[in-house]
Write a protein that binds this DNA or RNA. Structure first.
Lengths: 249, 249
DNA sequence: CAGTGAAGTTGATCTACATCAAGTCGGCGC
DNA sequence: GCGCCGACTTGATGTAGATCAACTTCACTG
């Protein structure tokens, strides 16, 4: 089975999503689907409600002791590892409904920085509590394995992108991936605001910021997209998809 | 905290390792550490004993339904995704004591091929059984989360390698990583046999086979290593490490 | 609303690696 | 032992993207 998309769309894992569009109680946030009322209540008791993180602030940093997973309730984050000589590798961008911090379980310490790229809000999920509850709630246990597995699959997609694709393909994959993820969340798939700099895009895609800029301009010249600073409008999605199919299916 | 190594050494997750060096009962293989006698017995009941996979054979292929995780009891595997146009991205090499197939949990289907690069033997861990047992055995549950987390951290390391490092650094990282993993398993850290082709190395590292070959030759010319076909001898480990430190810590 | 600094664009040049090509080497079957 | 095929090496050349540099635009601050 070939990957449908080089950066697989991550399912919205937690109920955060639905809630962020309504006015329901905070209690119902950050909970996995498929639990009954009683189980939800138990989970509610564990999860800390919406903690705000200002734009530019770190939710956590590499090296800090691991205590909790975090579900993005609202906003936008980047996760990145910094090498000793100061170069940054962005390992992912995380939006509403996505879970962060799973890399920290292995060593009980965070291995990357999580930085808010806009004013955001997260639910904190203390891991030992979640783990304990998961023993009594198989659906929760399985959900956690699935979410972690999905992260692994996503990372393999990025490895494919970094190892095999060229600049145009990477950018096309990136834009299409963002588009899908916004669409799932009820935002426009055709027009969206980039929360990150060209440099951060470049870091994620293994390109320099100039190349990102040039390639975006090229896409615009070819009529594939319209770029206005960080506002992106997808004009010809099919052509973008064709860019991918040609080389990478 | 900076990554110590761009490709973090994966802890040997299961007791496979210890056993593969002794003649103890197969029953003791493939089990996580930290369980008491009774728990071990339960696990033994679940795990299928050493299944042989011949060199070149697939343990599983992308698209196949997911039933079990596999622990390498003996041998050497590559895991790779194949894009529609036939290009291969090797996502990892797996040796004795390592767990494979975690990417399949998310979709109930395998997302990559696992091919034996030498005659090998695996333990099969039926996932639903493992999951059920994990509810009663917290240490097992936690161990699974940790192993999956470690895979995520490892993938981030590869992303850093693919996104930031140049050919020499990638190869140095690769050789040092292999060296460490062999050493942990009681084999020589200074001299080992590559199980994979230049092309497979290249696929993993995002390089063409010619570049892999050239770079190995260059390392040999510089007295860092000796290359004899697939036999590698590390002559000057410090220089290899220095190659990494300079650019990537 | 003028001034400042960060973010982004665009051009010219350079280079690491890919590509193309022509070998050699090594293991295996006959 | 001979011939064959896949793996590997090495050289010549091409090119995508990095690098260096100058400039523009934008957002924020006083």
């Amino acid at each position: 089975m070939a990957l449908q998309s080089p950066i697989p769309v991550r399912d919205v894992s937690f109920r955060t999503l639905r809630q962020s569009c309504s006015n329901c109680s905070l209690r119902e946030l950050c909970l996995p689907v498929g639990l009954d009322q009683d189980e939800l209540k138990q989970l509610d008791a564990i999860i800390s409600q919406g903690r705000p993180i200002k734009r530019g602030e770190a939710l956590y940093r590499a090296g800090e002791p691991f205590r909790s997973l975090f579900a993005v309730r609202l906003g936008f984050f980047k996760a990145s590892v910094i090498s000793e000589d100061g170069r940054e590798q962005v390992t992912g961008f995380h939006m509403t409904g996505e879970l962060m911090g799973m890399d920290a379980i292995s060593s009980d310490h965070h291995t990357c920085d999580a930085i808010a790229l806009e004013d955001s809000e997260v639910c904190e999920l203390p891991f030992t509590d979640i783990e304990t509850l998961a023993r009594d709630v198989p659906a929760l246990q399985h959900h956690l394995y699935k979410v972690m597995s999905r992260e692994i699959v996503r990372d393999h997609g990025v490895m494919l992108l970094l190892g095999n694709m060229k600049a145009e393909e990477r950018l096309a994959a990136f834009l299409l991936n963002l588009s899908q993820r916004f669409a799932i969340r009820g935002y426009s798939a055709m027009s969206f605001h980039l929360r990150m700099t060209r440099e951060e895009i470049g870091s994620y895609l293994g390109l320099k910021l100039e190349t990102v800029s040039r390639t975006l301009s090229k896409f615009q010249d070819q009529g594939y997209i319209k770029v206005q600073n960080r506002l992106i409008e997808l004009v010809d999605v099919d052509s973008l998809k064709r860019l991918l199919n040609s080389c990478q299916g």
